[in-house]
Design a protein around this nucleic acid. Structure first.
Length: 545
DNA sequence: TTAGGGTTAG
């Protein structure tokens, strides 16, 4: 194949055999990687050359270590040496590009495969579909999938269906994923445990755990057996609904099927307990985990730290942080975000700032969450805007997200004027406010009773091509409920119905508090029933037995 | 076990 195939040069961090990490991190994976690369270099010098399958195995190992750039550079080497490369090797390359979020280069490889007169395999398309899903380009994945079927390019297999179903679930369209599952069954393609698990996971994330449990029963009936991943999704869904007994029942079911819980299983419990404020229970799970021979990882410790931070117990949170360092578990940016959040909530800005600097010192990337947490913290001591000005003076170009945090923070701290100034400043910098920015601004206006101004802003945003979403409508609804007459709320609810938006939990609770019962005529009740999602009604009005 | 699909944390 063409030896220029995999020399894109478009990846500025050019593929190298050394991982892009500092030398402090020399660990088992790096040693293994160095050994693999050494072996590879020996293999290409052997005469006769080892079978291609040996190269596949070696590259497969490197992919498992997630060193995608290294794998690509090694395939490049083969091409450069004119060692013939097959479709399987090209699939490995496409897979690596997918993980590097460069599916465009993956498609370039497909082009080369075709140009060289090779037939792309169904697995090639599966890998490309996965790449699109990984980049959140689910719609394009759907288009490609339909094209494969319509133009009979290849016969989709259970992996193809599984990949597309996963994309649909990730894109929030679990219903469509279920329909695809039924479609593949009709076509005589038996779903695998991965396929069922994908849908079960989607249903659990949508809080439709009972449907997920039905699907579990169905897969077993079809003699497809769940594994630890299937159960992890179900346990997550059940814990998320506070159905602890059912979650425990799942553990018992796993035991009877001889499926061992893994580090994920324990982490789901640790996290769920922490979110409920039951940090002591989470600590017990951690102990059980160790007893069972599973090593707590960065997720386990971070969840625990977050639990303590949420309760304002910074001493305990710091103790857990020190434990993880002692155990050689590297904290990540999420760990730091929790600690920063905890310190900000307790107005310990100096400590929050110290940790913020620690993130960059550790060569980690702060996330939008990091910035917003720090800025919200700084709002309390009135330092946010001055920090923002320092950031700009240092030559950093602020983006819309940063402005949005400041606008939201200003509004929530009673500084509507500052928010309005910042909002106009966006324009002068050539930045376009997005839906989140508009919503933050509308919320600020509504909180000050400026409902009509908020409505005008909605008209303006639509003119600018940013369309109000369910959050916008709920913000305005809450404003009306607080400041206007029930009659106005009724009109607004009718508009929400016409636009297909529903009432969220906090608006609903406000609605019940603000509208006197006698005003709740049948018009109101009908609308509310239509607009409130069923799970909210269920939890608020569980009928007495 | 020669490539390709599914799970957890702010």
């Amino acid at each position: 194949m063409d030896n220029n195939l995999l020399t894109p040069n478009s990846n500025p961090k050019s593929p190298s055999t050394t991982p892009p990490r500092s030398s402090r991190y020399v660990n088992g994976v790096d040693n293994k990687l160095n050994y693999s690369v050494l072996l590879f270099n020996r293999m290409i010098r052997m005469k006769p050359l080892p079978l291609l399958i040996e190269f596949h195995k070696l590259l497969g190992d490197i992919v498992k270590m997630k060193r995608y750039s290294t794998a690509i550079s090694l395939i490049n080497k083969l091409l450069f040496l004119r060692i013939s490369v097959d479709s399987c090797m090209m699939n490995i390359a496409i897979n690596c590009f997918s993980h590097l979020k460069r599916i465009d280069l993956g498609f370039a490889v497909l082009g080369c495969i075709v140009k060289c007169g090779h037939e792309p395999l169904v697995s090639t398309y599966n890998t490309l579909l996965k790449g699109l899903v990984l980049e959140d380009r689910v719609y394009e994945a759907e288009v490609l999938f339909k094209k494969l079927i319509k133009e009979r390019i290849c016969e989709p297999n259970e992996v193809t269906y599984g990949t597309v179903m996963n994309g649909l679930c990730k894109g929030g369209n679990t219903k469509m994923a279920v329909r695809l599952l039924r479609y593949m069954e009709r076509k005589g393609c038996k779903p695998s445990k991965e396929g069922y698990s994908t849908i079960i996971d989607g249903l659990c994330k949508d809080r439709m755990v009972d449907d997920a449990l039905k699907l579990l029963a169905e897969m077993v009936e079809n003699r497809v057996f769940p594994n630890v991943i299937t159960y992890n999704s179900l346990i997550y869904g059940l814990c998320n609904l506070g159905r602890w007994e059912d979650a425990k029942q799942m553990l018992r079911e796993m035991e009877s099927r001889k499926i061992n819980p893994d580090v994920h299983t324990f982490n789901i419990f640790v996290d769920a307990f922490c979110k409920e404020g039951m940090v002591e229970d989470a600590e017990s799970v951690l102990r059980i985990m160790v007893e069972k021979g599973e090593k707590p990882d960065v997720v386990s410790y971070s969840a625990l730290i977050d639990g303590y931070c949420l309760r304002g117990q910074m001493k305990e949170a710091t103790a857990v942080f020190n434990t993880m360092i002692d155990k050689n578990v590297e904290p990540n940016v999420i760990t730091f975000n929790s600690l920063i959040n905890g310190h900000c909530k307790r107005s310990n800005i100096d400590e929050a700032m110290r940790l913020f600097k620690e993130i960059t010192r550790k060569k980690l990337e702060p996330t939008v969450s990091t910035y917003s947490t720090i800025l919200y913290g700084l709002f309390k001591v009135d330092k946010a805007l001055s920090l923002f000005r320092i950031i700009i003076n240092n030559g950093m170009h602020p983006n819309v997200a940063l402005y949005t945090v400041l606008i939201d923070g200003s509004c929530k701290n009673g500084k509507l004027d500052t928010a309005v100034d910042l909002f106009s400043e966006l324009n002068s910098r050539g930045l376009q406010p997005n839906i989140v920015t508009y919503n933050a601004m509308s919320n600020g206006l509504c909180n000050e009773g400026l409902i009509d101004e908020a409505k005008e802003l909605v008209v303006k945003m639509e003119k600018n091509g940013v369309f109000p979403n369910s959050v916008t409508y709920n913000i305005i609804l809450q404003g009306i409920l607080r400041w206007k007459k029930p009659k106005d709320a009724l009109l607004h609810l009718k508009e929400m119905e016409a636009r297909g938006f529903s009432i969220d939990a906090s608006s609903f609770s406000l609605l019940l508090h603000m509208v006197p019962a006698k005003k709740l005529d049948s018009n109101f009740v009908d609308l509310i029933q239509k607009l409130v999602p069923k799970d909210i009604l269920k939890c608020k009005f569980r009928p007495a037995k």
